[in-house]
Design a protein around this nucleic acid. Structure first.
Lengths: 348, 348
DNA sequence: GTTAGCACTCATTAGTTGTGAGTGCTAACA
DNA sequence: TGTTAGCACTCACAACTAATGAGTGCTAAC
């Protein structure tokens, strides 16, 4: 049994119909509304074939057909239209994004927010910590008699800081000295390399004059470095899910969905380890916890260098074509915005 | 009609019963289980009085009684027990919190997380930006040919930073110069005062040598200052709500609850503007959007100075006594942990 | 290969009824 | 005068029934 033109046509009709209505699609309706010139009975035969091949299923005997994950996969790969966005939509997105284009972090957050608004799904943006980033300098700032702020700056401009409570008194001079020593010792080293080192020992050896202070600070220093490698996750529109018929009918399902979204560490992990490019994963192609969801993600770049991902998560029934187009466009637009502005530089 | 001892006793019984079961409480059950030595009929008379006084309501004619918001208020003010936590619970909380006690931000997050776990409600912690904070220094760090990081440090140790894309080229020297000029001009000034100033004009006047650069940076500088006054909000356990019977039965209600939680700006605003101390607000005592919720918050301090709030949000039916005890204890413990460690200082 | 016809399935909805928890009221009681 | 037993009444809820209708699968004819 092979997928001839007519079978594909019927599959496409069923899937786009189901995506719109969330109701199982029957043969009679199809025959009428999509006037393909064949009778319901013929369509039923074809449907039965498509079901045998695994592209469709049945919620129960007397219901219409519903796409399976495999069916969606075929749809996404072969049938759907994820073309260019119409010009007016592009304009609308642009004007919304260009408001704060000088600021990297804000822009990404806005983009994610906008994405959830347009798609009416849950959107997220993730900016993984740069594994290759190298330390630029370390600085301790005095705050009050027993609190200092540790600040670490990486060569790529990432800054992390942490307030630290000390159990021993310090002199401003000591802090300065320690800042300088640490900067000298660790400058240019990869953050990952530093984390593998036995810094605590290092500290007490190199900085005997400051040993008590240094020993106090070492664990926090490691924690702060860790923070540098941590990914940042933004998430928007998780109540959008409840507007969808599949969830407003089925509370259980909605809650198990929410629980996945609540586990930010898990979600971050999934996203960070995801392949690059425009990636769509459908239902059981995802890990067990997300086998009822589909994810679409794409990458955005700064100066052509990969920086993070933007995407949506939703039920397997979603407008794959439109959503993909929007995500693609937003990511491309972000990457363009954060391209080195050569024209500007040329001017001066 | 006044609230005699017996009425109070009945009210207390109804409320604690309802808090446990989420089912309307009937007169017969009360008479049997709480053996107060009076018949159901008498209890019914008292109940009718309590209802006239506004402390109870009726979901429908043939149902038992349910506390009203006013009833909960009386309960919270007069009847409930929010005493000391038993020693073993204190121990458990302490040991969970003491893991990362050198790091301020982590500890607060852990505390909020723990709070949601213990209470099985949604917890949050908010650390409002310090309105009195004064600027300590400003620094621009070069990242790549058209990106710099702006870093602002306040006297109290708060650090904010932002990556900024420039449209004009810069020299490292210019950045240094600008950092120095801004630090000199703004050091010791209140952040709120700076925000009221017309910095953009200031910039072009004071720094004519850097005018293009300065003009480019000014709006981002303002935005970054803003960030310094923004409150940080952490939230944990919002799916806990779905475990409660009032929400698993009534989807609508759960969703409208979630929508409130999703609006972080609104929630932050409510929390920041809340009175100090251990505050309980019940049902319609809250703003319209939260008229079905109750909030309990308390403050935590660092070095005796007010720093932020920790609390829970849940349905009006909650274990006010226990939850209040836990929140109080956690806040006190945090404040102790972040008290200047005089003993330690004495040693050296 | 296509289609009309028909029996069959099954979710959904509306209607019906019984049950039980609980109230409010009244009249009798201490 | 406060307390209580008794009883009629209310109303949510669950169980059952029947009707409806959308849709399938199969068969036989075209």
């Amino acid at each position: 049994m092979n997928l001839n033109e007519r079978k594909l046509q019927i599959l496409q009709a069923i899937i786009s119909e189901f995506i719109n209505t969330a109701e199982p699609v029957g043969s009679r309706y199809l025959s009428k509304s999509y006037n393909m010139g064949i009778s319901p009975a013929t369509i039923r035969n074809e449907m039965a074939d498509l079901e045998d091949m695994g592209y469709l299923t049945h919620p129960h005997t007397s219901a219409g057909r519903v796409p399976s994950d495999k069916g969606y996969r075929l749809y996404v790969d072969e049938l759907m239209d994820a073309g260019e966005l119409p010009e007016e939509k592009k304009q609308a997105i642009q004007s919304r994004l260009d408001q704060a284009r000088r600021e990297l972090d804000n822009t990404i957050e806005h983009a994610a927010d906008l994405l959830s608004e347009i798609t009416q799904l849950t959107s997220f943006a993730v900016a993984p910590g740069n594994l290759k980033s190298r330390l630029k300098y370390v600085q301790f700032l005095p705050v009050d008699s027993n609190t200092v702020v540790l600040m670490i700056v990486a060569e790529d401009g990432q800054v992390v800081n942490k307030a630290i409570r000390l159990s021993v008194p310090y002199k401003e001079k000591d802090l300065e000295l320690m800042s300088k020593m640490m900067t000298r010792n660790y400058m240019g080293k990869k953050v990952t390399a530093l984390m593998a080192m036995n810094i605590v020992e290092d500290f007490t050896k190199d900085m005997h004059s400051l040993s008590a202070l240094a020993r106090d600070v070492a664990p926090s220093f490691m924690k702060t470095l860790e923070k540098m490698l941590d990914a940042e996750l933004y998430m928007y529109g998780y109540t959008n899910l409840f507007k969808l018929p599949e969830f407003s009918a089925d509370m259980e399902r909605a809650v198990s969905f929410l629980r996945v979204l609540e586990d930010r560490d898990y979600l971050t992990d999934v996203l960070v380890n995801r392949d690059s490019g425009v990636i769509i994963t459908i239902g059981d192609e995802n890990a067990e916890a997300m086998k009822d969801c589909s994810l679409i993600t794409a990458d955005y770049c700064v100066n052509g260098r990969y920086v993070g991902k933007l995407g949506v998560i939703g039920p397997t029934r979603m407008r794959y074509g439109q959503v993909t187009s929007v995500i693609k466009y937003i990511c491309d637009h972000l990457s363009d915005t954060f391209q080195i502005e050569e024209e500007d530089y040329g001017k001066d």
